[in-house]
Nucleic acid binder design. Structure first.
Length: 901
RNA sequence: GGGCGAUUAGCUCAGCGGUUAGAGCGCUCGCCUCACACGCGAGAGGUCAAAGGUUCAAAUCCUUUAUCGCCCACCA
């Protein structure tokens, strides 16, 4: 079985193969059949509108790592993948898409429009799911439900009607945020605020019959056309005599009253405020209190309407300019000052939002929020990371009613019918035949649709067959986990919690893990609705999907955002390459064994990996005992880290183990063993290496699925075994744990390190073999070094290693000292340059002296001795003793060096 | 205006009460050693933003300040 393995890892050749769907199908089946407890995960949808972006990669990398890990540990996993949210962004993209083809969406009619969006969803959404498969995404999409499917629509109606009957949904005339580009009302959450440099215009409103003016300040002069009053503070002496009188509204020549209201801030501007109930939230309230008329001066698309008189037809910002000019011309502009203020922008279109009074549907939140707050306070829902918990609670405690109607074409129609005759409004599950009040058949359904988050908020139970008590619902609800970005904590998560609790009495999930967001180098957020950012498909081709996944995982410390950089990606790619080449080493040896006449069945039988570490000559070699002890520790760290969603910790510990322990030490150490003339010894070495590698591969699999899959298939496997993903996740076996081996090998590592350092300092030819002396007063240490002499000679490039219990004689050579031992290299021709060595040693002495002083002080402190835990005190005493020995040795060394120079 | 977070090696970030603070990249020196130069070995580099406080013990907890992010918020 000759193996032809490329010298470097080439993901392009590997990934398409293991991105194939059969692997995943096998995974889903294995998952469904798994014997373990149910683990259900609610995950966000792929977007319909744009391409796959790097934010998805992070999200699905984390989901995929978790699910592969769970599955390998025998959990039965169910996914509830959301589908597109049928939202504003979808509609906007489709509208634009149609416009590009010269089609006006309004002329299409609602049904045709929906059909087009459907088509779009199938094409674009399908593509995204395909791409997801390509990134090693192991979610089972077969349970994906389209938001607007008949089943989902039924649930949405059911929920709407129930909430309405409970008085939690109401219809009201309020001031709402209107986006002139999206042509719909927006919830408060969909409006982002931005500081902008603007102006404060001071406008003179003439007092009829006098030459006097009342000066009001405004940031939006165009709204003055809709003014219906001017307000001052009731206690404001300056305007006392004017209250109750009228002023002339300039440009419109309309007389409007001067009223008082507590809302007015006497300090701001002139202390007199123009009141435009139809276009300002404060003014709207004032208008209500004083029974003022609302004059809407704008059209849906942000132009002035007929009520704006001469300005009708102008864009709102052109109107502003014109109004300023006209006021100036009439001498009514008192002054203009600079003013920075926060303006509301539409989250999607970035247009300036126009506050407008309109009739909308609202959902009362206070009662829904209360149990949702308690659930989190009582930890029935765990929010990770911790700091988002506070954010959630804070927001929920100050929650405001939710505008749920949208003036879109795309979404769930509100199940309300208006009677054309008596204006009665009926909310019902099914289309009513006639008006329940007057019997008229002239019924029309409310033209509005529901906010996309309304139906999304039902996801955890709407997908499981609720309100029927289905088997799925009983088994999988409440779900185990929700994974999503913290940017939709309020939009989606909070609403799922509220609605889930309200309708099922149970929290929809036990834990919410909010992952970081990937930002561009400029710090901008990459979100689904923005096409910005790096293209993950291109990055995958460049670095390999495994490298990208590993990179993301290793950076995904919870609570902070991550910025992906080429450097980090290159590092991850190097790691993938390292694994690849370690495998090559294995394969080459396997081939050598085969050529040597030992059958692969014997060397690489699946059973071989189960009994490691193997003993040679009655005992397990130190190197093998150490490796498996390190493996056990790494497995525990990984399990612990993943259980707490600490992906970076898991990834880093795997990295450290594989590169640092397995490659740098273990492989280097066993190389000659594998070629040993002693056949039995060679085979033991091989079996241990093979078992160690196989375990490491399974440990790595959740992080690097393609690479590990490929290598796993290159290794001989049990008949019928289909995928490493169906294998078992390594278990940190009790027999592997071995603190003694770790300590002993640590000493060996230290000694080899000291020898190498000396060689480098002496600038020895790397090939030059020299003699070294090791001396220690500690007998066990001496015997460990003695027992591993062979490898130390090789790794230290030594011709001889003398081990002694005596202090080293004074003369010659280069010395490295630790508390436990001294190492010296004697080589006549070369010696350490005292000029470079002396400063180093002196610096070291300074550091140690400081350390000794601080420890002596602390240990001399009675309070410390009285209160610190025993372990700390003993540890510190031992260290202090070591430091003293080191200091003594170094001081002698300085004297020696000084004498020599 | 409120809330949350960040400030640690040249860069990007871990660590978040205990004994000499870590990693990756970059840098310096030496190596193409038959798995790997996407590599190997060695090394330099940090008074953990500042000032107070709590503690036997603080990068880690508290307070204040500075700078930078993010989220929330109807002051015309």
């Amino acid at each position: 079985m000759p193996r032809e393995i490329a010298k470097a890892y080439e993901p392009q050749q590997i990934e398409p193969r293991w991105g194939d769907y059969w692997v995943k199908e096998a995974l889903f089946k294995a998952s469904a059949d798994a014997p373990g407890p149910v683990f259900s995960i609610v995950i966000p949808p792929p977007n319909v509108t744009g391409s796959l972006h790097i934010g998805h990669m992070l999200e699905h990398t984390e989901i995929d790592i978790l699910t592969r890990w769970h599955r390998m540990r025998g959990y039965n996993t169910l996914y509830l993948p959301g589908t597109d949210h049928a939202g504003i962004s979808t509609q906007r993209v489709v509208v634009k898409y149609l416009a590009d083809q010269g089609i006006d969406y309004k002329k299409l009619g609602r049904e045709e429009f929906e059909r087009r969006v459907w088509k779009w969803k199938e094409e674009a959404g399908g593509q995204i799911v395909e791409q997801m498969k390509g990134i090693g995404e192991s979610c089972d999409w077969s349970r994906e439900r389209f938001t607007l499917s008949p089943e989902m629509t039924r649930v949405v109606r059911e929920v709407f009607v129930r909430l309405y009957e409970e008085g939690l949904i109401y219809r009201g005339h309020y001031l709402t945020n209107w986006c002139p580009v999206c042509l719909t009302v927006l919830s408060d959450l969909e409006v982002t605020h931005e500081e902008r440099q603007g102006h404060l215009w001071h406008v003179r409103y003439p007092l009829p019959g006098t030459k006097e003016f009342l000066v009001v300040a405004t940031t939006r002069p165009e709204t003055m056309l809709g003014d219906t009053a001017v307000a001052v503070h009731p206690g404001d002496e300056r305007y006392k005599q004017l209250v109750g009188k009228k002023v002339l509204l300039p440009l419109m020549n309309r007389e409007i009253p001067i009223i008082t209201d507590e809302m007015v801030d006497r300090e701001f501007g002139t202390g007199a405020v123009k009141i435009t109930p139809a276009h300002d939230p404060n003014d709207f309230e004032v208008g209500r209190r004083h029974g003022l008329a609302e004059i809407d001066v704008m059209t849906d698309d942000g132009h002035m309407n007929a009520a704006a008189g001469a300005y009708a037809g102008l864009d709102r910002f052109e109107a502003r300019k014109k109004i300023i000019e006209d006021l100036k011309a009439q001498g009514l502009l008192e002054k203009v000052s600079d003013h920075t203020h926060a303006i509301g922008l539409c989250e999607r279109s970035k247009t300036i939002v126009e506050p407008r009074a309109s009739t909308q549907w609202f959902c009362r939140m206070k009662d829904l929020a209360k149990p949702a707050i308690e659930a989190v306070e009582e930890n029935r829902i765990k929010i990770i990371p911790e700091n988002r918990r506070e954010e959630y609670l804070n927001w929920m405690r100050n929650i405001r009613d939710w505008t749920i109607s949208r003036q879109l074409w795309w979404g769930h129609r509100i199940p309300a019918w208006h009677c054309g005759d008596c204006k009665e409004i009926m909310v019902a599950r099914e289309t009513p035949g006639k008006c329940g009040k007057c019997g008229s058949a002239k019924l029309t359904q409310d033209p509005d649709v529901l906010d996309t988050w309304f139906s999304s908020g039902l996801w955890p139970f709407s997908t499981l067959g609720w309100p029927e008590k289905t088997a799925d619902f009983k088994t999988y609800y409440p779900t185990s986990l929700l994974i999503t970005g913290y940017d939709i904590l309020f939009f989606w998560v909070a609403r799922m919690i509220m609605l889930g609790l309200h309708f099922t009495g149970q929290a929809p999930f036990r834990a919410v893990y909010l992952h970081s967001l990937v930002r561009t180098t400029s710090g901008e957020k990459m979100s689904k609705s923005k096409g910005t950012g790096m293209d993950p498909v291109a990055l995958n081709l460049q670095y390999g999907t495994d490298a990208m996944r590993f990179c993301l995982a290793s950076m995904a410390a919870p609570g902070t955002d991550i910025v992906l950089s080429d450097d980090r990606l290159l590092g991850a790619r190097a790691f993938a390459n390292k694994i690849w080449n370690a495998a090559r080493f294995l394969f080459m040896n396997l081939d050598k064994f085969e050529q040597g006449g030992t059958s692969i069945e014997e060397l690489a039988a699946p059973e071989v990996r189960e009994k490691a570490p193997y003993a040679a000559g009655g005992s397990v070699p130190l190197i093998d005992a150490w490796l498996f002890a390190q493996l056990a520790a790494t497995i525990e760290t990984v399990n612990d880290a993943l259980a707490n969603y600490r992906f970076h910790e898991a990834a880093q510990s795997v990295y450290q183990f594989f590169w640092g322990d397995f490659c740098d030490w273990y492989i280097e150490w066993v190389k000659p063993e594998l070629l040993s003339a002693d056949r039995e010894r060679a085979i033991v070495a091989w079996k241990n290496l093979f078992a160690g590698f196989d375990t490491a591969l399974r440990l790595l699999h959740p992080f690097m699925p393609f690479l590990t899959e490929e290598l796993w298939h290159q290794l001989p496997q049990r008949a019928g075994a289909r995928s490493i993903a169906l294998g078992e996740f390594p278990v940190a076996q009790a027999t592997w744990k071995n603190a003694k081996a770790q300590e002993q090998f640590g000493l060996v590592q230290e000694v080899i390190g000291a020898i190498r350092t000396l060689r480098a300092e002496m600038k020895l030819d790397p090939k030059k073999k020299v003699t070294a002396e090791f001396s220690s007063l500690d007998a066990p240490a001496r015997s460990v070094i003695d027992a591993n002499r062979e490898a130390i000679l090789r790794l230290g490039i030594l011709s001889e290693l003398r081990v002694s219990a005596e202090r080293l004689p004074e003369a010659g050579g280069a010395v490295r000292s630790a508390a436990q031992f001294d190492v010296r290299i004697t080589y006549a021709a070369e010696t350490v340059d005292a000029a470079t060595e002396l400063p180093r040693v002196r610096k070291e002495i300074e550091r140690i002296k400081k350390d000794i002083a601080s420890k002596e002080k602390q240990l001399g402190d009675e309070t410390f001795r009285g209160r610190a835990p025993e372990k700390i005190i003993h540890g510190m005493e031992a260290t202090l003793e070591e430091r003293r020995v080191e200091l003594k040795k170094l001081t002698e060394r300085v004297a020696q060096l000084e004498k020599g120079s």
